[in-house]
Design a protein around this nucleic acid. Sequence first.
DNA 1: ACGTCAAATAAGCAGATACTTATCTAATAT
DNA 2: ATATTAGATAAGTATCTGCTTATTTGACGT
Lengths: 104, 104
Amino acid sequence: MTSPDLFRALADPTRRAVFERLVAGELSVSDLTAGFSVSQPAISQHLALLRDAGLVEERREGRRAFYRAKADGLAPLASWLDRYRTFWPDRVERLKDVLARMDQ
Amino acid sequence: MTSPDLFRALADPTRRAVFERLVAGELSVSDLTAGFSVSQPAISQHLALLRDAGLVEERREGRRAFYRAKADGLAPLASWLDRYRTFWPDRVERLKDVLARMDQ
DNA sequence: ACGTCAAATAAGCAGATACTTATCTAATAT
DNA sequence: ATATTAGATAAGTATCTGCTTATTTGACGT
């Protein structure tokens, strides 16, 4: 029982791309729209779905809306993955990689 | 650029459940079908999609087909996650958890 | 007050998706 | 050989999804 539609939210390529941009930093809906080849309503719809999945949060400023990735949004996905982490063979190596990257 | 339809493959709840059972151990299509409330063709279709996504592999024995989760099937997902791992705050704690679990 | 701009919502549509039943293929059993 | 069994494939269908254009809501500028 991973937050059931976390996978679904990330399944669409455009929506995943929207999320990835918001990990890089906060953006307004217009800024976001400018970066994609779909309409503003399409972006708003993606954002609503991402918000419902707990992946982004919203800050409102006047008539503009700023979105950013939610810090712990991916945590359920990480936990789900951890359940199966013991499954693949090179798990120790992977972990060392992560540690190495963190030590920098 | 995560193997593009890994998320898609896991987005459907039934299909994800099929995969999770196969992580627990190899099963024939009949065994698998018995555990779900959908038809055998539906299961076969899910298996085909999971295979295309690199999540399961197939072993054929006479007229039966046995499926099992592929060891490194989730690796692309893990790499994708790693890119955003630095993003949430309790990353050190998470990692300690994983290590603790592995030491057992 | 009035026009404009940012974003959300409504309505509709074409294509995708998850299922079904029916059929096919191939291996086994009698 | 024939019947049976396991699984895949075909074809059809209802629902879901991602998009579009049109409209609405609300904040801002003049």
